[in-house]
Design a protein around this nucleic acid. Structure first.
Lengths: 371, 371
DNA sequence: AAACAATTTGTGCTCGAACACAAAAATGTT
DNA sequence: AACATTTTTGTGTTCGAGCACAAATTGTTT
């Protein structure tokens, strides 16, 4: 049924000489066709295709030859109609109430649900507390008891996630991850961004905004979640300036918590009067922006992460220069769709898909948020 | 078959109390079910659904009531299997040999072809000369003679496109456009970017790189193609600086052709020694970058369009500061997929979809190009 | 060679919607 | 009332793959 003709027109002259580059008019073979060609019944062909055995060697050989020869692709529509099977996928997300970064993921899930509504796909979403690794482990236990066909999750806790992955593998449950790569061969697929490169993007942005003065990398709430992943961004950020010839300013580091925030940051800024740029490695960028705005540090450039409403507000008033969009919705959408299509149509899932690192300023924020 | 359960866990305590927010376990009704419920035969139900007539008022009413009550959705898999119809879509692109900007579009088309390979969709691509409006018109004539079910095209020539659209409408052929919006109600759908906003993004980028000095908008090869669309970018660009309080530099304009390029640009730069920023409104940005590099104008910031290899090279050497990615591949992909899903599954197509305006610097270019 | 078991092969029904055609009911004509 | 005509309704087959079960073939034992 797949047909794709490519017609080129030699457009130097007005007259259109259209000819085919490749005219794929693939004859659609059915199991019955193959049966006839091989001189057997469709039952036999079916047995060969599904390796159900109970086929004599001679018959098997005849059928396999023809199968290969014509590159037989079964009609998935018909298969789907017959089997009428419902696949079960669980999605595990950090609770969006605790961290609004994850809100768009729910939308991504819903989009897949809508798109695949004619097919037998049951999707169940559950949440864990992004500040508590035990909540993550417990949530995975619940899912494992549900025995779904596949799972999509954001493995916020590196160590715990790697352990949990083993259980899934033993249970024969396919797992895809997104947002954070835990580099486990037990995961089928990872959808996310290159965090090292993401740090380099931030570095380049700050460097193009201001060429002089010291820079600071700010980590917020590093004790929970994401520690490994923040470091990756830091490494990328530093690598950019290391490669920069004739760069003679400092790249500093500053760790903040939401509790002692103001105190520590005030002290830090006092210690480093030459500071012109700040890179915040999390979506909590607005906290720093709030602070800079209140304390009238208008000259400091700021780059951070994610299109939370608070961040975008600061982007528009100018207290944040750029945001890097990690596109959690798209990550979820793609990860889930891959799983569904794998179950339904036996599509191959890429081991890793790195999405583009989106740069956002005051003028292009809206369409990203609307999507 | 559509099922989506949402399980929330009150994650303040470790114990997971999971409960359903909405458990959509939609009972899948078949035509036969409805027939039974209405006390008629499946043939009658079928006639009602397809408005084939030949049904008594009483029977029709009974069926319609139930149909509405349970919000009946026919099994599209079964329908597709039965009808076994092949839909025909034509894609018309500017010849990528004449303008490499369009190369990614072909990849976008191929992706749809692959994804929908199990369904009856025949896609035919043809090209026209982007420098000759007559070539565009002629190509559309060829397509109209082919009588496809739907057409996706990039209407580079505003006036000619609006005329051609009428013919399609009269022939009952669905047309979607991408890249350029010709604002005709004869087109089913437009996929693209907000060009006005795109100009504003460029303005903001140049403003964050250098706060002082005059700026120039450079149009290249305006006589062919795109004139209307370049102006839209210009308007956006200017609007940004008009809104900027205490901005007292000039926003100049400069029109170039590939023939007299060096001469005119040399003269222009001599005339405006305070120039610090250039905005090129087309993918030919590399021409300006080449010039600036050769003539040692290192201090001038440059923002332009599209991830052509030549442009990206300049991005990495630093002679282009930012590129705006118009994402032609994604535009084609989405436009085509919408059409296919509309034909196959009667999905609604949005009248307009504006994709995000992607900002690209030296550090995030690669993943955009790989996709 | 008959009787039986084991293996191989073929047939026919199913999934749900579409549609052709046959059957039945309603209406019209004499 | 008898028959023709039109309108309405019901039945059965099809699409292609999957699978249960029946039929046919081969092999083994006495």
């Amino acid at each position: 049924m797949l047909e794709h003709k490519n017609v080129l027109c030699s457009s130097t002259k007005l007259q259109l000489k259209s000819f085919n580059i490749f005219a794929v008019m693939i004859k659609k073979y059915t199991i019955r066709d193959i049966a006839e060609m091989a001189g057997v019944s469709k039952g036999t062909v079916d047995r060969v295709i599904h390796k159900r055995g109970k086929v004599s060697e001679t018959a098997a050989k005849k059928v396999t030859t023809i199968l290969k020869e014509i590159d037989f692709k079964p009609n998935l529509i018909a298969r789907n109609l017959k089997t009428n099977k419902t696949y079960h996928i669980c999605v595990l997300l950090p609770d969006p109430i605790k961290d609004p970064y994850w809100i768009p993921c729910v939308k991504g899930v819903n989009e897949v649900v809508l798109e695949l509504s004619h097919f037998g796909i049951k999707i169940e979403t559950s949440f864990f507390d992004p500040t508590k690794s035990k909540s993550f482990t417990a949530a995975n236990l619940v899912i494992q008891n549900n025995a779904p066909d596949a799972v999509l999750l954001a493995p916020l806790f590196f160590k715990e996630a790697r352990i949990v992955m083993q259980d899934y593998e033993n249970l024969g449950i396919i797992v895809s991850t997104f947002n954070n790569d835990i580099e486990s061969k037990a995961v089928k697929s990872f959808i996310g961004q290159d965090l090292f490169q993401s740090g380099r993007v931030a570095a380049k942005l700050l460097h193009s905004v201001s060429k002089t003065g010291d820079l600071a990398i700010v980590h917020i709430n590093e004790q929970y979640e994401n520690a490994v992943f923040m470091q990756e961004k830091e490494r990328g950020f530093k690598s950019f300036f290391n490669e920069l010839v004739s760069f003679n300013y400092s790249v500093l580091q500053c760790k903040l918590n939401q509790e002692d925030f103001e105190l520590v940051l005030t002290a830090f800024l006092k210690d480093h009067p030459n500071l012109t740029s700040i890179f915040v490695t999390t979506s909590k960028t607005y906290l720093v922006a709030d602070f800079l705005e209140k304390n009238n540090h208008k000259t400091i450039s700021l780059v951070g992460y994610d299109l939370l409403n608070e961040n975008v507000t600061h982007l528009k008033t100018g207290s944040i220069d750029f945001l890097i969009h990690q596109n959690p919705k798209e990550q979820t959408y793609i990860g889930l769709k891959f799983l569904a299509e794998h179950l339904l149509f036996e599509k191959e899932i890429p081991k890793e898909l790195l999405l583009p690192i989106d740069i956002v300023n005051s003028e292009n924020a809206t369409p990203f948020m609307r999507r």
